[in-house]
Design a protein around this nucleic acid. Structure first.
Lengths: 347, 347
DNA sequence: CTGTTAGCGCCTTCAG
DNA sequence: CTGAAGGCGCTAACAG
């Protein structure tokens, strides 16, 4: 049968407790004894039983990272960064912590399900990335879960997501509103007045904030917001393509298109090209996020760079208590406008 | 303190065993009783203790997915697909299985560490995606782990990775060799004779197989393989950019560049453009994988499409025993040549 | 520094 | 269909 800690103890001629101590390295053990135990572990090819150890210690080495879409580099970059910070020695049971990323698909139900699963596993920490769905009921359900999670000793960090009120969750929020505003200001500064806006899915914080920034920039210039110039859709290429067709139909006079993110912007570029329109000569295009491929678009995409890696790493450190949480538990992470070839003055 | 199954039992006026039975739904329980238990669960806001249940049942609901780079959509797409198939009811403890993706960063050590962690957790299944490092020692270490994993009842599936000999792991292998060959044949058919090749990192199966395909195509035409025309590098944009510079320096007469994958190809395109070379007029470029952004490159990238989503989904189903493993435990998944604007005849 | 002793919370025979 | 009882493998006080 499967070899247990007791087997190791027997072979090393020590008590189970001692074996446990050398394995967890959190208690003094004589060098000679430790040596003997380690050898026994090796000879027996022993592997600690995670569930048993988690049960006894009432905590596990699991760190959960929730993402909306694992196929989207936006999340992949953050998840990878988080993970690079949570590993390494220091945890229980051999020192290795296990980062697990959970793909919610943007569905609040799955988000809740995963949080419950993580709660079940007595996760050491949970990090939620990306925008949240704006539904009072779900927000409350999530907040409740987060509350129970923190009460149970799980550290919760939100990365790229607004704070969750009445919760001990630390939040690193992206300044989507400010970024959106900068972007549109840039376009207005170039002389554009008829700007199409391809927003993300409705009812999501990210979508709303970016759109608000856009409108704020418009308002600041006294430009009336034409509802016909805004179209909503998912965060994918196809949506950008279709939305651009639609915008062009509604407003053939538009001179610029702002997309909810870079992926959508690429779709917009494709639609424009297929219509024989040149970028930026006929229509300027801008994205958001500055994902790695954006600089390789032709022309290179003007966008707002979000420090995804840095934010993820910081979230990871906070989750591991390697870094102090920001005062008030909330920090705003700003984007940086990257002006490139896809935007220019209107013809 | 935290509410336990016993608390629920007390409130519902049944025995703990009964509560366990309704929670796991794997045993007949009177409808009225179940109702009562469920209500108690709800009122008490009870959450099953994962470790305890895993300990008692000697198995968990965890399914591990190992990827080389979580920020790369190549892996994200597969991971997402796997996960879409492993969820849903049918598992123990509430019916939800938990897919966790683990980022190895392409390091064999971390791969081993994660496998040990998953073994520790008594994972229900483990899926390894993408190419493997070609080092006899590591290959044997991994094979040993996989063997022990399967012996312990964990189902192991390799997705996009060659079979692991002397192992019960099911393998869905990509036909990288065939794809590479097709691609180069396409270029040769267009009339190219001096073709630069930007290979992936050395010592990896994917790199070697794609390169072998390329050379096989060359050999079939009786073209001598010029070592100066091959450069190795990581699977990223930067590598494609630098390698292209290097190739151009070594062989100013080349008329085409084949990249290890699409991301590298984008870097190659950027380098070419920065040198004032036109694609495909001056130099043709081809990639591999057909990631979503590849069609939006300008010109659109000629590449080999790998059915990443389908393969991942199938791996997930096999891991969950929802689908029969292929005969012999090995299946080859073929790519499809996608000819687009980035390749044309040499000037 | 090391051994002994109790559980951690749940599942699973075995009776009833 | 339901209850009682034992143990899954490990950790965490306590002693020594």
């Amino acid at each position: 049968m499967t070899v247990t800690l007791a087997d190791v103890a027997a072979r090393a001629q020590v008590s189970p407790a001692t074996v446990s101590r050398v394995l967890n390295g959190n208690y003094p053990v004589a060098a000679a004894t430790r040596e003997r135990v380690l050898r026994a572990v090796d000879e027996l090819d022993y592997v600690l039983n995670g569930p048993a150890s988690a049960l006894a210690a009432a905590t596990s080495d699991l760190v959960g990272i929730l993402v909306n879409d694992i196929a989207d580099p936006f999340f992949g970059i953050m998840a990878g960064a988080v993970q690079s910070e949570i590993g390494g020695p220091g945890g229980r049971a051999g020192g290795e912590r296990m980062a697990v990323v959970c793909n919610t698909g943007g569905s609040p139900e799955r988000e809740l399900t995963y949080l419950t699963l993580l709660q079940r596993q007595r996760a050491a920490a949970v990090i939620l990335t990306g925008g949240a769905v704006e539904d009072a009921e779900h927000a409350e359900a999530i907040a409740g879960k987060l509350r129970r999670l923190t009460e149970a000793g799980t550290r919760v960090v939100l990365c790229g997501r607004p704070p969750s009120p009445d919760t001990d969750a630390v939040a690193l929020t992206f300044d989507n509103r400010g970024g959106g505003q900068q972007l549109t200001e840039h376009l207005l500064g170039l002389g554009h007045r008829r700007i199409g806006y391809i927003a993300g899915p409705e009812e999501r914080t990210t979508t709303r904030h970016r759109l608000e920034g856009h409108r704020a920039a418009l308002a600041a210039r006294g430009i009336e917001d034409d509802p016909a110039l805004t179209v909503h859709g998912p965060y994918d290429r196809r949506s950008g393509y279709d939305a651009t067709d639609e915008l062009l139909r509604r407003a053939p006079d538009l001179t610029a298109v702002v997309a909810a993110n870079d992926t959508v912007a690429l779709g917009a570029c494709a639609a424009l090209r297929d219509k024989g329109l040149r970028i930026p000569d006929d229509v300027s295009v801008a994205g958001f996020d500055d994902l790695p491929f954006s600089i390789d678009a032709v022309p290179a995409l003007t966008t707002v760079r979000l420090p995804l890696h840095e934010a993820g790493a910081r979230a990871g450190r906070i989750a591991m208590s390697k870094e102090k949480p920001p005062p008030g538990g909330v920090a705003t992470v700003h984007g940086e406008l990257m002006v490139r070839g896809s935007t220019a003055g209107p013809r």
